[in-house]
Amino acid sequence: MSNRILPLELIDKAIGSPIWILMRGQTELTGILRGFDDYVNLVLDDAVEYSPDPRDKSVVVKKELKAEILLNGNHVAVLVPGGTGPEDSMAARST
């Protein structure tokens, strides 16, 4: 039992490192994880948001938020510690 890692312990280890967040819906974010709480509300530095263009859903708009942000945990679906975002995963797929 004791050697089992709890999910939030994994996230705790990611503090200070890049993290990739997939929201419910289409939006994704990346940033440096500064902290989180029991509800998985997240504090991020240097956050970048990737969301579908409202006019053409096949186009992804990249937006640098240039801010420290608090992300509401309500809409968080998946966390990828160390992930640097969708561009990274596309690069990985092509190799």
Partner: peptide, 17 residues
């Protein structure tokens, strides 16, 4: 409160709510 806020940032802080 529960309008699916996404984030909050100060203009350098964002609250994504």
């Amino acid at each position: 409160g529960n309008n699916g806020k996404q984030c909050l940032s100060e203009r350098n802080f964002s609250i994504n709510l």
